[in-house]
């Protein structure tokens, strides 16, 4: 479905965001990438989306190198990114092709699935943050993608809304069997949403660990293994930060390490 073959990305200013990333997402699989901010995880997602291109290595979707955004790949951004001049209906229809009637039906069913079927005539300025993000989900789903890329999609919401939308997304996943790549700095979110978690380390961005989430899909937050997984993830994230810090400022790393022990 999605494949990275030793992908590196160095920006024109010489900053290496990603180094030798290899990963593979099979159809129907859900993978989360966690890492502290600045570790290159958003760059990784943008590469998968075809919004930017690797300096070396290859990004493949359906076995073909990505040279432009693929029509069957959806992207759910960190912000809703709705067009403020369009109604909710028109925002969901944004980018849909085909006859008007068919588009209307797709919009209706997408809004129904996110529970906003009565809000089609609203404008973005009338929506709360959670509603706007649900409209964005509807827009991402209306085009029936096979692979969906999520960039910290719920991070701007309060804890209750976030959990609600995460559960919601899981239901959608169960009915659609969407392949999913989600990038987040929220370890709980990664455990709740993914089957496999990749931990990234910054400067330059690399994948340093892979964890399988071997839990049933329902109510993972309540599962006894949840806390254990969470601890393990936090631990490896700290190690990643520590290692990258020592790569840049050895003394700073010693300091933070002693602070951690103390």
């Amino acid at each position: 479905m999605l494949q990275f073959e030793s992908v590196s990305k160095t920006y024109r200013n010489g900053f290496t965001a990603l180094e030798a990333i290899s990963l593979r997402i099979d159809p129907g699989e859900r993978v989360a990438i966690v890492g502290s901010s600045g570790c290159g995880k958003s760059t990784l997602l943008r590469l998968a989306a075809g919004l930017t291109f690797p300096s070396s290595g290859r990004v493949l979707v359906y076995g073909k190198p990505v040279i432009r955004p693929e029509p069957r790949v959806g992207f759910l951004f960190q912000e809703p990114r709705l067009m403020p001049w369009l109604s909710v209906d028109d925002n969901v229809a944004f980018g849909l092709r085909g006859p008007a009637r068919q588009r209307r039906d797709l919009v209706r069913s997408a809004l129904l699935r996110v529970g906003l079927s009565n809000c089609g005539d609203y404008y973005p300025k009338q929506l709360s943050g959670g509603m706007a993000q649900r409209v964005a989900i509807a827009r991402a789903l209306a085009s029936a993608p096979r692979l969906i890329l999520l960039d910290e999609p719920f991070s701007a919401l309060d804890a209750i809304r976030r959990a609600e939308l995460q559960d919601h997304f899981l239901q959608l996943w169960e009915s659609d069997q969407l392949s999913t790549l989600i990038v987040t700095h929220d370890v709980e979110e990664a455990i709740v949403l993914a089957d496999r978690i990749l931990v990234m380390q910054p400067h330059p961005g690399r994948i340093i660990e892979e964890l399988l989430v071997d839990l049933p899909l329902d109510d993972r937050r309540e599962s006894p293994a949840f806390e254990g997984l969470k601890k393990r993830l936090i631990h490896s994230l700290r190690q990643a930060d520590h290692r990258s810090a020592s790569a840049i400022h050895p003394s700073a790393a010693t300091l933070s390490a002693s602070a951690l022990q103390g």
Partner: peptide, 20 residues
């Protein structure tokens, strides 16, 4: 950010101009 939404929707340049 809005332009990227159009790019993900597979818009060509003319569509980006007209619709965004």
């Amino acid at each position: 950010k809005l332009v990227e939404v159009g790019r993900m929707a597979g818009f060509d340049r003319f569509q980006l101009v007209r619709r965004i």
